[in-house]
Write a protein that binds this DNA or RNA. Sequence first.
RNA 1: CGGAGAGUAACUCAGUCUGGUAGAGUGCCUGCUUUGGGAGCAGGACGUCGCAGGUUCGAAUCCUGUCUCUCCGACCA
Length: 570
Amino acid sequence: MRWSNLLIPTLKETPQDAEIISHQLMLRAGLIRRLGSGLYTYMPLGVRALRKVQAIVREEMDRAGAQEVLMPVMHPKEIWEKSGRYEGLKNVMFRVKDRQDREMVLGPTHEEIITDLVSREITSYKQFPCNFYQIQSKFRDEIRPRFGLMRCKEFIMKDAYSFDVSSEAADVSYQKMYDAYVRIFKRCGLHAMAVDADTGDMGGSSSHEFMIPCDAGEDAILEADDGSYAANLERAEGICDLPMVFAGAELALAAVETPAVGKIEDVAKLLEIETRQLVKTLIYVSDEKPVAVLLPGNRDVNEIKLNKVLPGAELADPEVIREVTGAEVGFAGPVGLDIPVIVDRSLKGLKGGVIGANETDKHLKNFDLERDCGITEFVDVALAYAGDLAPNGKGRLVEKRGVEVGHVFKLGTKYSEALGANFLDENGKSHPAVMGCYGIGVSRTLQAVIEQSNDKFGIIWPISVAPFELLITVLSPKDENCMQKALDIKTILEAQGVDVLLDDRQERPGFKFKDADLLGLPLRLTIGERGLAKGEVELKARTDKDFEAIPLDQAVVKTFEKITAMREAL
RNA sequence: CGGAGAGUAACUCAGUCUGGUAGAGUGCCUGCUUUGGGAGCAGGACGUCGCAGGUUCGAAUCCUGUCUCUCCGACCA
């Protein structure tokens, strides 16, 4: 392909509304243009890179035994009502009406649609296992689209759905997808990590997210420093290993005056103790009943974890707190409280703690959890922190940020039951299929590649997803000899299956080199009059500091060798 | 939705406080020169100052409303 035949609108200046480097570079290199918030056009170069990612995804999904299908983007609302997600996802779904005033939704995901299909077509145990996937635009009314392709209202996703006869068989399907994901991201040149994740709206029993570590990532990850554990912050379990025994452990409960001091930090300061010696007593309301939640003073509630113990729990209003504790906000404590108490496991063995006295301006010290409350049951409802021990008790947790590019779920039978995807076993007995679902944000993956691979001059494409593999820069396109040599090389390499972009623009060399670095194609072959006079052309990888002069008659061979080596490295 | 900021040429931005002929750089077009890391000179085209009202002799500028975009929080591939 010739540059002059492609719209590649490179920008010298950084567009104002791009915050992170990958977004800036996608705009500057002319890969995408914005239509509206969270809506982007893929320019010719962007489409080429996107197709490369898609090709890798297809190859690996096919290899893993998944079958490609293509489902409608637009769905009748009734099918979403069957699973209950018409309500559950009502804030993310775009809704439209047809001329009959029938309500439709634009698909944010396709569990319901594929399960409906399978319920009709897959009816015998002999047809299992099976796995269907598609690559398609998804629509989500995101609260806040961000960072170019990172979070869009319309984005391209690969979604796959597996169906099995048992949960053991489903585990095998899950593992196959997990392994395929590892290969996909590796082939895209990405350093992805799999982390334990929450299942969120999707439901199901367990899931892993595939994260690309980078500072611009929207998710927080906690990883054990020995690599034995990694989880999304919202899911992570941390063990605080410091003994919760403080001065005054053996003494009886005693009141201390804390006038107008209700905040953890202020109480700790006044009493000259650590914040973790204090017990944070939070009053939640779940199912219209108040419940107390206890944590060390230096920890916060993980609302996702709490919701599993206390469905729909929300922090109580001040009036409720006053009613329940008989004190102003800030002086709640577990002793003498007449409501259920949930205790985070990090409080296990607490002696010598300080609690609210359920009396305004007073706290109680020398608190012993078991002695004074008789509490012996603990749950995990706290946010894990960097510095905690990993759940296996070995590594220490370190915080990272990451971009979620893929997510695999074990769904169980939630959707198959709701939509009647049952099959008959050997004995003619009916069972719901056991499902898994697997998503890759294809467009997001593309941007993640750039976020992870760039320098101050521009993008550095891994060859597997680069819009072109080779850039031939013709320094003097007017010179017939130069142009002819370049075209000859291009023709041969293209015949050998190399994606070649020929910069035939009538521009000064410096201008073309800057654009070349910005585009970041993995290999550049420079052909100029000066070199040709010596019978030489120049070869330079995007990551090389300097070019290598090679004889003209070896240009094709050497270039092909390099391309081959680059391909094989991924 | 809450908080913060921004809408002026294709892009980056000045001008707004203090109302008085709409600007710069980049890009684009033409010509000449130049040609190995975003060239120089000369000439040229491009604007409903986001939109709608209002105040005023006069509004990019002041007032009111409204829309859009970006960033920070809750959602997710």
